[in-house]
């Protein structure tokens, strides 16, 4: 059954407002622009399929994170047929121009790449939690996305932060 018209409007709104979630999850879980673009499209497809079930039972961002992370965790690179892909209209791999100088901007871009590489090197469960942390989700929200208890999220996240700090080499974690 096709989603009703208001779901189509919801889908459009969510894609417009939360596009960053798709981009960041895809970049954290796969290497390469082609794979990232395919994973993004698969995540959007799964969101489309899930929308008829949405009745305001959670925040849109929570719903989207669940869909994106579940899709990323079970996505098999190249296992699916290469569906015709809708190409993005803008180059999405940029840092904001808030940086003081071009050198600053270049340096921050390197650090961002380093962060994504570290994320990709982590265990998937840790990666998911760190991603949620970096996006500023509270423990309660992380618990809603993952299905873990808040206590468990706290413990797992502490461990994941330590691993991230190790991977980023020479970085200290203020929690240590």
């Amino acid at each position: 059954m096709s989603p009703p018209a208001n779901h189509e409007a919801t889908f459009q709104t969510w894609i417009e407002e939360h596009r960053g979630i798709f981009v960041k999850v895809a970049r954290s879980f796969v290497r390469g622009e082609n794979d990232a673009a395919e994973l993004q499209q698969e995540m959007m497809f799964q969101l489309w399929l899930s929308l008829p079930r949405y009745a305001g039972q959670s925040k849109p961002s929570t719903w989207i994170y669940r869909v994106c992370l579940n899709t990323a965790l079970t996505w098999r690179r190249g296992a699916k047929r290469r569906e015709s892909r809708i190409e993005p209209e803008v180059d999405i791999s940029r840092l904001s121009a808030d940086a003081a100088t071009p050198a600053d901007l270049a340096g921050n871009k390197d650090l961002l790449e380093q962060l994504y590489s570290a994320l990709q090197a982590m265990q998937e469960s840790d990666r998911a939690l760190v991603l949620l942390m970096l996006d500023g989700l509270a423990y309660r929200e992380m618990a809603e996305v993952t299905g873990l208890t808040e206590n468990h999220v706290g413990v797992a996240l502490t461990r994941a932060r330590k691993r991230l700090a190790t991977l980023l080499k020479g970085v200290t974690d203020e929690l240590e």
């Binding site: 417009e16 596009r19 960053g20 981009v23 960041k24 993005p88 803008v90 999405i92 940029r94 840092l95 904001s96 121009a97 808030d98 940086a99 921050n108 650090l111 961002l112 962060l115 970096l134 996006d135 500023g136 932060r161 991230l164 700090a165 980023l168 020479g170 970085v171 200290t172 974690d173 203020e174």
Partner: peptide, 17 residues
């Protein structure tokens, strides 16, 4: 650098509007 610095860079990451 510490993780907070990386978090700041993450937040400044430009994502499509």
């Amino acid at each position: 650098m510490n993780l907070n610095d990386y978090e700041a860079i993450w937040k400044r990451q430009e994502v499509p509007v």
